[in-house]
């Protein structure tokens, strides 16, 4: 099953010390995640995950590695505290998840609240048959405006952080040379 494969890739990411390998594995992880999302009927989300997770994130991570370094030196104090903490958290969440309804049941609480109205009315209200689009841009327009603003802010932040000349080897030349990554 795809989910099991996801777990295996995650273990590989934990073990891998070469950061280049880690970045490629995280691209693999994103594609697996996109396949899982298609199985779960979330086609819009799967499309986004495939293009963003495997495309843009990988490019940005590789660019960062190019600017820094690719090997993780491991002072690696073998302490058990993080593992124990993670396990305790995991058990707590797992205990909570036992109360969730079994996978795929149609009468769970989540399917009964506002969603039937969206599904029934979207064509009448907006002439848009893709419910995800109509909820995104119309019924929940405020939320999406907020998300767009967050993207805008993050973009501005990156531009501010990375503009200007570097301190150590001065400003680079202008156009001409491509990225070396």
């Amino acid at each position: 099953m795809l989910l099991t494969l996801l777990a295996v890739v995650t273990l590989a990411i934990i073990g891998q010390r070469n950061l280049f390998g880690v970045v490629i594995l995280s691209g693999v992880y994103s594609f697996l995640m996109a396949s899982v999302l298609i199985v779960l009927d979330a086609v819009d989300v799967a499309m986004t995950e495939a293009s963003v997770g495997a495309g843009i994130s990988t490019i940005v991570l590789l660019a960062t590695l190019h600017l820094t370094r690719t090997i993780e030196v491991r002072p690696w104090r073998r302490s058990w505290a993080p593992l124990v903490l993670a396990l305790v958290t995991g058990l707590a969440i797992a205990w909570g998840s036992l109360a969730l309804p079994p996978f795929g049941t149609p009468d769970a609480v989540i399917h009964r609240h506002v969603v039937p109205r969206y599904l029934a009315d979207t064509v009448k209200d907006t002439h848009v048959p893709n419910v995800v689009t109509s909820v995104l841009a119309d019924y929940r327009g405020y939320d999406t405006l907020g998300e767009t603003t967050v993207i805008f802010t993050a973009g501005i932040g990156v531009m501010l952080l990375l503009r200007g000349a570097r301190r150590r080897d001065g400003g680079g030349g202008d156009d001409g040379a491509g990225p070396r990554a």
Partner: peptide, 26 residues
């Protein structure tokens, strides 16, 4: 049909996620 509401939330969360990841990497 499967429930569209979580799809909407996560769709925007993915794009915001990559923007914040880039901020962290910067």
């Amino acid at each position: 049909y499967s429930n569209p509401l979580p799809h909407v939330l996560i769709l925007t969360a993915i794009v915001v996620g990559v923007a914040t990841l880039a901020l962290g990497l910067a």
